[in-house]
Design a protein around this nucleic acid. Structure first.
Lengths: 114, 114
DNA sequence: TGTTTTATTGCATAGCTATGCAATATTGTA
DNA sequence: TACAATATTGCATAGCTATGCAATAAAACA
């Protein structure tokens, strides 16, 4: 893992734990992983094809989310199945979508009224 | 601003706009700023003393949040007052706190039951 | 045991971020 | 106009992050 001293995740001095939480969500691949896991548990090789990155990268993203407690895993033979621990994670993603949508509309209106 | 090609914020190829949104929240100072603005609008110099960083840094953090649409500003004389645009921003911070608290308790129980 | 499949690390690297200090605006005031 | 207060950029930099490829590990199986 690329954790040589940091692997906070995100920048140096972190006091607020939410900083790490949001940093974990600040990544396309990880958001996509959570989205895919909304349908139920999936193992690394099932997720990899849909993320357009090397499977090793997927493995690392899963490790990051697991490390934070956002995911849990269940080993079954050679497969490692991951799933989201808390439904509120999905809720946060949904709320973020709504906020961004409204912000987008608000800014569109500003441009339209020039 | 340190935006030479990126200032996404966060990493290279971003498709999901939520990635930028969460990246904006993945910073102690910015979370603290939002927390302080919960009490009402504040200008740069009012915020700076509480963030333990140079005022220029505060200015940049405010610019980042404004750029994303999370904050709006109102100029009054030499002062520039910022405020949060959407109450749901606070809600997301609160939900994150709750989730992290539960994760923390869950992991404590695991350790306790070894 | 040797082989195949699945998953995780070691290593190297391009690119991004946060920060401070100095230099500039900008605005209000004597 | 000269000066003070507020706020924003230019520049340089330490430190982090995401990614790929190769090497390893772990498990199921012939």
């Amino acid at each position: 893992m690329w954790k040589k001293g940091g692997w906070g995740i995100s920048n140096g001095y972190m006091e607020d734990p939410r900083t790490r939480f949001f940093a974990a969500l600040a990544c396309d691949q990880r958001i996509e992983i959570i989205k895919l896991l909304r349908e139920g548990e999936r193992c690394t090789t099932e997720l990899a094809p849909k993320l357009r990155v090397d499977i090793s990268v997927v493995s690392r993203h899963l490790a990051i989310l697991k490390h934070l407690g956002i995911l849990v895993n269940r080993k079954e033979g050679v497969n490692n199945y991951y799933s989201v621990t808390d439904e509120r994670i999905f809720k946060i993603l949904d709320t973020a979508s709504k906020i961004l949508k409204d912000i987008s509309e608000r800014q569109s209106n500003i441009v339209a009224n020039l």
